[in-house]
Nucleic acid binder design. Structure first.
Lengths: 147, 147
DNA sequence: CTCGGTGCAAAATGTTTGCAAGTAC
DNA sequence: GTACTTGCAAACATTTTGCACCGAG
């Protein structure tokens, strides 16, 4: 029996690009490799500066477009910052949100049991946790029909 | 025994402003009242357009500054959009985040038990949930010293 | 060879700042 | 009266778009 081949990160990128009809350009490889090394959830500009060390002629536009493409084919995630304008909520009681990944609609809901979610020891030891929020992501009623 | 007086929304605003040394201007009252009526977590511009119906001479800048002030004194929340640039995460396995409300640092962590978080029926009925994320918010190791 | 990708420049969008005039307290 | 707030204008930051050239498949 053969040991299953483990895809290297670049092979994974190649495969996913092929699946989605994207070309594997040196820029995309460089951006993906740099992001894999990054543990700090960088924004486009921070990543741009890192990639420039190995790829001096790359442009910020390419980094922006590439990251969006990667997010679209699902090989990276967009976190906490969504690049959207700030949105405000007058409800300061603890409650939770569903967020449509397509249109950004947010639906509030209460769920008493979430108050009992436990905070891992490793986190408790280093930071001060003020509140716990559950974010459900998916498609809202309207968008699920379109997709 | 007296029934405790229930603060009207504007009285609540007055009290909190006084506590924090902010003046209660007609603009602030109008913005707060309008936000209370909004169930859709509007951004500054959307709210600006609504407030203009009752306060035609208000400026977008005032709405922006007021909302930030309100968030600072804790009478409203900033949700999902943080007005920050997009940030990217190469880790697409399900994991969770701690986010520092002061400096924006994100710390990843895994917590197996979160997979068993239940989705309320009311949500399940109308939307498609793709994933469940827990977001812990508070002060990171560095910021908790400063504040 | 062909179509998608890149780099550049410009536009669009959203947020912040500086300042003189106005107003809550 | 004073310090905070406002509205306006300009600056800034980030993202998006248009387009000619280039290169991966």
């Amino acid at each position: 029996m053969q040991i299953p081949a483990r895809l290297s990160s670049v092979d994974f990128l190649r495969e996913k690009c092929r699946e989605h009809g994207l070309k594997v350009t040196p820029q995309r490889v460089a951006i993906y490799k740099e992001l894999l090394k990054s543990k700090d959830h960088p924004n486009a500009e921070a990543l741009f500066n890192r990639v420039r060390n190995t790829f001096p002629d790359i442009s910020l536009d390419t980094v922006n477009r590439t990251l969006l493409s990667f997010a679209e084919i699902g090989i990276i995630d967009i976190v906490e910052g969504y690049g959207e304008p700030r949105r405000y909520d007058p409800d300061i009681k603890n409650h939770h949100h569903f967020r449509c990944v397509n249109c950004g609609t947010i639906i509030d809901f209460a769920e008493e049991s979430y108050a009992r979610i436990k905070v891992p020891q490793e986190i408790k030891k280093t930071v001060v946790v003020l509140n716990k929020k559950v974010l459900l992501e998916g498609y809202c009623h309207n968008c699920r029909k379109k997709i």
